[in-house]
Design a protein around this nucleic acid. Sequence first.
DNA 1: GCTGAATGCAAGTAGTTACTTGCTTTCAAC
DNA 2: GTTGAAAGCAAGTAACTACTTGCATTCAGC
Lengths: 212, 212
Amino acid sequence: MDIRERILQAAARVYAQHGFRGATTRLIAIEAGVNEVSLFRTFGSKAALFEAMMQSHSASLPVPELPERPVDPQAELIPWCSLLLAHMRQWRSIIRKSFGELEERPEAAVVMCEGPNCAALALTAYVTRLQAAGLADETADVSTAVSMFISSMFGDAVGRDVLPPDAFPQPVEDAPAKYVNVFLRAVGALGVGDVVPLRAAQTADDRRAVAQ
Amino acid sequence: MDIRERILQAAARVYAQHGFRGATTRLIAIEAGVNEVSLFRTFGSKAALFEAMMQSHSASLPVPELPERPVDPQAELIPWCSLLLAHMRQWRSIIRKSFGELEERPEAAVVMCEGPNCAALALTAYVTRLQAAGLADETADVSTAVSMFISSMFGDAVGRDVLPPDAFPQPVEDAPAKYVNVFLRAVGALGVGDVVPLRAAQTADDRRAVAQ
DNA sequence: GCTGAATGCAAGTAGTTACTTGCTTTCAAC
DNA sequence: GTTGAAAGCAAGTAACTACTTGCATTCAGC
């Protein structure tokens, strides 16, 4: 790995831990295992380094896909939700810092929104397909329900490891299933009185993300 | 207002704008209109000042109340939701900063959670009363629905002014009604196919909070 | 009018920060 | 073996940080 990439990755790690002001060029250089001077020779300034870091990280957004022809909403959404949560949890530290510094460095907003926004579009389209197939209520406020669902995923991913446990009554492993079930009820895709089995869909990624 | 209170309020304003590291004692002193030395004479150190600030702000949590005997869930929840949003928006800047710095200064977590946690308890109890009165589905996952609702309020209050507008498809004035309606559907308090009129409940506080 | 506590002011300390300069080392390409 | 670009290293700069010291000013209570 070349020096530029090493510095970029080190910067991301240090930034996630300390934020912009706390991520000193000295710390980043040590973390990257390079000389501090090399950092300035490569990027010119700390601000330029962070701009490059944000751009390089916006490339990676592998949001999971939802089936074109929905059959079993629960079975299809729960794993999707698990993956989404795991994906968001990967970036939770960076997201928290960037969010707090959005007023000073607004360029982080686009990077931060890409993932959730993408997920929201996919989910909205999916529910529209559910409606077309007669599997969801046509009168439901899909846009609002999706927005609330994404907010909840965001909140869980970003808050669970730093907030007191009573802020998230659902245990991690049950959370995706519970979130999905509530969402499906909200869009009328789960009849009132339906048996709502708890399908825990915890992936290996999930466990790893939580454990770290 | 005595000097102690003036410094505390100035510290809160500067902290909301710049975060802990960015809130220099010099800036706080200027904002408070006092000498920097007086700051150290009053609080001893910057850390002690911020501890005092957090404690003094935890006192103010006037979460609105919900009726003991529910009659019209929509009519009762929408204004409650408006107030909750307005209350959270008041602290959005401070919340954003504290959230990003939770790993370094976890004592902010309790202060930050008190409001939402309190609201969650009130809402849960209210829905339980709805269920008892036959106004909500007994099989609904109330705890998860409430948790998702509070997350959504949190996300709206803290994100709307710094995220791109497409992150929040509902205009501010319609948001409380839409959120409440989706929530009520999720707990089976709004029959499928019910006419769901949009009751905008924008208070004066609300408008002021958004405008600022 | 005097005292004493609260506050302001000017100056200074020691540490940290981003960033620079000048020089040496490494090492692959020719 | 020589060259040249990339990297390391030691040292330094100027600005800023939290925090201190010593002294002058204000002003309410006696």
